[in-house]
Amino acid sequence: MASQGTKRSYEQMETDGERQNATEIRASVGKMIDGIGRFYIQMCTELKLSDYEGRLIQNSLTIERMVLSAFDERRNKYLEEHPSAGKDPKKTGGPIYKRVDRKWMRELVLYDKEEIRRIWRQANNGDDATAGLTHMMIWHSNLNDTTYQRTRALVRTGMDPRMCSLMQGSTLPRRSGAAGAAVKGVGTMVMELIRMIKRGINDRNFWRGENGRKTRSAYERMCNILKGKFQTAAQRAMMDQVRESRNPGNAEIEDLIFLARSALILRGSVAHKSCLPACVYGPAVASGYDFEKEGYSLVGIDPFKLLQNSQVYSLIRPNENPAHKSQLVWMACNSAAFEDLRVLSFIRGTKVSPRGKLSTRGVQIASNENMDAMESSTLELRSRYWAIRTRSGGNTNQQRASAGQISVQPAFSVQRNLPFDKPTIMAAFTGNTEGRTSDMRAEIIRMMEGAKPEEMSFQGRGVFELSDERAANPIVPSFDMSNEGSYFFGDNAEEYDN
């Protein structure tokens, strides 16, 4: 993207840094990872977990959730003011799984939030270390993106479920800051804005008074975040219109849905970061690795190297396929839920299948599930090659597409044709070009129609051997075009429920 120079890199967003050079960025990201790792080690000690239990991804998720809940100030305040039966607002906890007599047992633990905050700050040299908290939120978000298709949420806001490739980060909490905003897809931002506008339509006082002023500035800020994701002048001009509207209503909703559809071809720039579970960072720190000293990046080879040398386990339900569970977590670790499966298959070195073909449910185990038949197995999170994460949407291309997802959002900077089903997408653009945004709409449609099938995206960008740390010898991959490109292809993934 041309304006790259004016933006802070995501590592800076990730670490609240002012302008830093590459070495400083690597050190501050490393410091953040160190903090998460030290916190995780301490929690495993508190909970008396064995090494194996500490490497269980379900335990990692519970521990991450506990610290996120302990620092969720708004919710904590709300819980104190609106006490609900049987919930102690000062405590947080969740299921911890232990191996007892050759069987997995679930144990519900409860801790004072104050105590968890103390352990977290102690692991982070006394700081609140917001960057580390956001990092864990993005890992949870990436896992949700890989596990669930947001059909219901899309339909509720009037969008087409086939636009799911635009929904990265749709389950990120509001408090995820600049680093969170960077990884949100165009569809996620559109959905947040539509929800806001709908509230304004239904509630006369939404934009009024002292609160209304705050609401208005939040609305304009979200519009600017979305505008910054678009790469064409016409899309940005249309966002200006939406932002400046005196009284946002149905016309703005129409414009936003139009823009979301246009992003299936004229893709937005959305950041991709490899955020790993805390149970990967903990053992690495415990083994003596100093992330701050060595430096770390979320968008280069580092996460690949770390996963190459990590042992992570997962509980497996009786009829689940461990290899499929591994694929789910591998995609989440690489922030690749909406990437082209052919690119992923090449990088991973084994075939990556669409969601609907995987015999696996989510990673988390519900409290009512029976533990008797639970097994555990090693997650295979290694890769054959590594590639640089991208934040450009890439230019655009036609490809055989599917009944489910009709476009992709690249996660890796790797040369390819970008699949999208042009006739299906263009069919949504018939007729409606009147109104105050008509010239911009016409211009956007013209650009979409001009998108050429034979153009290559990320020209000359390749993948790298894991021994090639400096990215000196790019390998331009070859793809098996007979395979499906979309992950949520004609899909039956479970729906995400809060």
Rank of each mutant, 00 (worst) to 15 (best):
S60N: 07
S9M: 13
E434V: 15
V190F: 05
I347V: 05
L154G: 04
Q149V: 14
L68V: 15
V352Y: 15
S438D: 13
P173V: 15
I444S: 13
L79K: 10
E80Q: 00
Q241L: 03
E449G: 13
S457C: 02
D51R: 00
L172Q: 02
V476P: 04
R106S: 01
E252Y: 08
A2E: 06
K229N: 12
R38E: 07
M371I: 12
E494V: 09
L298T: 08
T6R: 11
L166K: 07
Q409K: 03
D421A: 02
E210A: 15
L358F: 12
E252F: 11
R382G: 14
F412G: 15
T396V: 14
N309F: 06
W386R: 14
I36G: 13
L266Y: 09
I388Q: 07
Q399E: 14
D372Y: 06
S482V: 13
C223M: 12
Q168T: 14
Q20N: 07
S457Q: 00
E11W: 07
M167W: 15
S274Q: 10
R436K: 13
M196L: 13
V186A: 04
V476S: 14
R436M: 04
E18F: 02
R267I: 08
S314V: 00
A234Q: 13
E53Q: 03
K422S: 01
P283Y: 14
E495D: 03
L193M: 03
Y487K: 01
S69E: 05
G212E: 08
P161H: 12
M456N: 05
N142Y: 15
I265L: 02
N76Y: 05
N395K: 03
R317A: 15
N368E: 15
N473E: 12
G126A: 05
L61I: 12
L193H: 06
P248W: 08
V343W: 12
M448Y: 12
G362I: 11
V312T: 01
E495K: 05
E449P: 08
V186H: 01
N395F: 06
E46Q: 06
A323W: 06
G94N: 06
K90Q: 01
S335C: 04
F71Q: 14
G212A: 12
L344I: 04
F464H: 03
R348D: 12
S326W: 08
D491R: 02
F39R: 08
D340H: 02
L108G: 03
D160C: 01
S486G: 10
F479P: 15
R446N: 03
M481S: 14
E73I: 15
R221M: 12
K87E: 15
S413R: 02
R446M: 04
G268Q: 09
V155D: 03
L68I: 04
T6I: 12
K273Y: 09
E292R: 01
Q42L: 06
D160H: 09
R99T: 02
A336N: 06
I475G: 06
I36Q: 07
P248S: 04
S402R: 15
E320T: 05
D51F: 03
G86Q: 01
R195G: 09
M331P: 01
L56T: 02
L307P: 13
N144W: 11
D160V: 04
E252L: 08
P277M: 10
Q399H: 06
A451W: 05
S353W: 05
V312F: 03
L466H: 03
A472V: 15
A123N: 04
E454L: 15
A286K: 13
K351D: 10
Q308F: 09
A129H: 00
L47G: 07
D51C: 04
R361C: 08
I445C: 12
D128H: 03
K113L: 04
G228A: 05
R19A: 07
M426T: 15
S326G: 15
H324R: 06
T15G: 07
K7E: 08
R162V: 00
G86K: 00
D255W: 11
Y496H: 14
H140N: 05
S314L: 14
